[in-house]
Every structure is written in C-alpha cells, then in structure tokens.
Amino acid sequence: MRLAEQAAPMPLAPDARALLEVKGLKVRYGPIEALHGIDFAVAKGQLVALVGANGAGKTTLLRVLSGVHRQSEGTIGFDGTDISRLAPHRRVALGICQAPEGRQVFGPMSVEDNIRLGAYRRQSADLNERIDQAYVLFPVLKEKRKLSAGTLSGGQQQMLAIARALMGEPKLLLLDEPSLGLAPLLAAEILRVVDRLRQQGITILLVEQNARAALAIADFGYVMETGRIVKAGTGPELLQSEDVKRAYLGM
C-alpha cells in the first residue's frame, strides 16, 4: 500500500505566509505522467526539504517551478501571484533562482563570467560588491575566478552553481541535490552553507537523496514517491516517522 493512501489530509508547511503555493500540479513527459497531482507549500523564511528515491519526480518538480518545463494541470502561486504561465526568465526576475541537478555551469566560460551571468536580471551598481560577497562564501572560487568553469572539480562546480543562483538575489532558492557525487566532507560543507543561507533569511527548497542530512537541517519536509507527495511534517517528525525511517533512512 502506498504511504499516501493511509495519510490524513496533507498538512502544509505551517507558519503565517506561504511564499510558494503549489496546487494540483500534474506534469507529463510526452504521454507519460511524471507528477500526479502535487500540493505543497513553502513558508517564507523556511528551509524546506524535499526527499525521495531516485525517479520520484523531485527534479521534474523543480523544473516546473522554474518554468523550464510546463505543467499540464495545476497552479503555482508565488508571493501572492499566479506564476503558472510565466516564462522562466520572468520567474528569475521575481526571485526564483535554481542551482540545478548536475550543476550545469557554463563550462568554457570563466568562473567569474558564470557568477556575473547569475546576476543577469540583477544588474545594479553594487554588482562588484555582490560578487565579492559570493567569493567570501566560497573563497576557492575567487582563487579560480579566471579559469574556465569546466576545469573545476565537482565540488567547486557545485559551489559555483550555488553562487550563480545567489547572484540572482533569490527570494526562493531551489537546490537540486547539491551534495550529489561529492565526498562526504564536502557534502557536509555544502549543507552547512545551505543552513547558513537560511539563517540569512533566504527561503530554500532543498532536494536531497540524503534524506537524513537534509531533514536534520530543515524546518519542514516533504517525502515524494513516484510522482506524489506521500508524507509531510517538520524535520524531526519525519526523521522519527517509522515509514520514513524504513523507506529512506535504511533502518
């Protein structure tokens, strides 16, 4: 039996105002439906984790939130407005920035050009100061700023992808498996940075296969399974839940 079928009505992220509110989202790739009706919310200022096995539809959901793939049904509300039909670049302008799965840096371009391009919708007089802030967060990128991004290690490319997304001055930061493929120490370092960004007040939706690590720092979490959200709760609640322990934490 699916977890969803035994669950009570899905609780949404608590707290006053939802920055992101998704209702009845269905998404298909050609004839195949990948998301079968997703409802969830992300409250302002929170770090929300989205966990689930490979192929559950986490990346698909983030792609639809950024607008690079269209839903077939459902609505996406952001900061009080309906953005369901908005083009991707307009969503970035509103403050939805994503560090995508697989980093997707502009390989042949310099590290600094990658960072500058992150601010494509945020060209302001203090741009150079903001670039310096990104270098404070990831000092290694400053050392390598003249090198082409493709020459960086996997961990450094991940830092670059996050720095690039931060240059868009996100109101909502979408992170798709930022620790994937990284050595454990580096993965832990990335998650520490994510935690610090939340403390600075950025709302974050964090997708992770490493459910334990993600839920440990999250205010709220959702568990996805084959295109559905099957469980929701605060980080500690989900970490304690027997279903989640069995299915995702290998206990």
Binding site: S66, G67, V68, H89, P100, V105, F106, M109, L117, Y120
Partner: peptide, 25 residues
C-alpha cells in the same frame, strides 16, 4: 557586453541560461 555573453552562455547551456534569467527565445 552582458547581452553578448548571454548569447554565448545560451550556446553552451540552454537550460542553465534559462535558469539565470536569460530570455532564450
């Protein structure tokens, strides 16, 4: 120019270009 770099960036990675807010259309 930023616009020229955006065109170059689009040629390297269309998805990433969209995600940084470049109007690829």
């Amino acid at each position: 120019t930023m616009h020229g770099k955006a065109l170059v960036a689009t040629s390297h990675n269309r998805l990433a270009a969209q995600l940084v807010g470049i109007n690829t259309m």
